[in-house]
């Protein structure tokens, strides 16, 4: 074995430690993608996407059929068309489409991440394998960012990427969807902006989900490590907190600010804000102000980052 020892001196430049983020993320993603269960959940998300994707064609087909039928029976089709469009407005590529798409996909994302948190992050601490990473010439923040990047990629794959495909589908159908901000108002087919502002809103919504959920998952998975406790924590944060907020605000008529304890509501509220929803159009009503929801999310993210900083001060393991 010793005779094989022949290192060639390294002459090149070392990459910056920032380059190590992707290999860390790739290891986590590799483990994630090697589990069939997660492919199953991804398939569920894909079904939702397909519903939206082919739903657009369904809407177009329904409109054309309705027009023909109305002419045959001698009725004014415009009123019926409005009714159909109102019923299927979530398929027309407007702000509603993306709001509902992100909301539905978000549910699957939350389930997926609560199941995957242990695998993506917790096992590193359970098995102490993060020592391999932290002994290399990177800082703990590179390690944390690598883990966050893995979660963010999963979120992007399940939300932003299919949302962009939906956007592209509508743009491909009608080029003015991409170029005309007032596309929906001019065609009387929906509300909200189209064109580049809608594209930026979709990207922003995806970014918001990625950043918040990745930091939250990495922090809670470092804390809980095991799958079941992590599921309970995420259920508390995203389900019980929501139920409690609804009871307090809708049932007991407390101040709308009590809805701020519902983190998912805060995320979707900000997302709808990006999609140019008016505050009064956001359901359920009443809602806190946009800035209040943003402040809560920033606060929670900051607390998570402080915890991560503390937790990775060292491999604090007493044998």
């Amino acid at each position: 074995m010793a005779s094989l020892l022949h290192y060639r001196p390294w002459q090149g430049e070392f990459h910056s430690p920032w380059w190590s983020i992707w290999p860390i993320a790739r290891v986590s993603l590799g483990m994630f993608l090697s589990r069939r269960m997660f492919w199953g959940l991804y398939a569920c998300g894909l079904l939702l996407f397909l519903m939206f994707f082919f739903g657009a064609y369904l809407l177009a087909w329904a409109e054309s059929q309705l027009g023909v039928a109305a002419q045959q029976f001698g009725r004014d089709p415009s009123r019926m068309l409005r009714g159909i469009r109102q019923a299927l407005r979530i398929l027309n590529g407007s702000q509603d489409t993306f709001q509902y798409f992100f909301a539905y996909q978000g549910g699957i994302i939350v389930v997926t991440l609560s199941l995957a948190g242990s695998l993506l992050v917790g096992d590193d601490f359970t098995n102490k394998s993060h020592a391999f990473y932290l002994a290399k010439p990177i800082s703990r923040w590179h390690y944390i960012l690598g883990k966050c990047a893995a979660v963010a990629v999963i979120v992007q794959l399940m939300t932003t990427l299919p949302a962009l495909v939906l956007y592209g589908q509508h743009a491909f159908d009608d080029w003015s969807y991409l170029t005309n901000v007032n596309y929906f108002y001019e065609n009387d087919t929906g509300k909200g902006p189209a064109g580049i502002p809608l594209l930026l809103a979709v990207l922003g919504y995806g970014l918001l989900l990625s950043v918040f959920l990745s930091v939250l998952l990495v922090a809670t998975a470092m804390w809980m490590r095991r799958t079941m406790p992590l599921i309970l924590v995420w259920m508390s944060l995203f389900f019980f907190a929501r139920v409690l907020a609804n009871i307090l605000v809708d049932g007991l008529k407390y101040d709308a600010r009590w809805r701020l304890i519902d983190l998912w509501n805060n995320v979707t509220m900000l997302g709808q804000g990006m999609l140019a929803y008016a505050h009064e159009d956001i359901n359920p009503k009443p809602q806190p102000e946009f800035w209040e929801a943003a402040a809560v999310l920033i606060g929670v993210t900051t607390i998570c980052l402080m915890y991560l900083n503390h937790r990775t001060q060292g491999v604090e393991i007493v044998d």
Partner: peptide, 30 residues
């Protein structure tokens, strides 16, 4: 520094080659 910890459980799904290659990327090599 090269550190060889005592633990034996790590990234079971990866091949040995993938693991070592990942660690090499951590060291900053192209």
């Amino acid at each position: 520094v090269g550190y060889c910890p005592e633990l034996d459980t790590f990234y079971e799904e990866m091949s040995g080659r993938q693991f070592v290659l990942t660690m090499a990327r951590m060291c900053g090599y192209a």
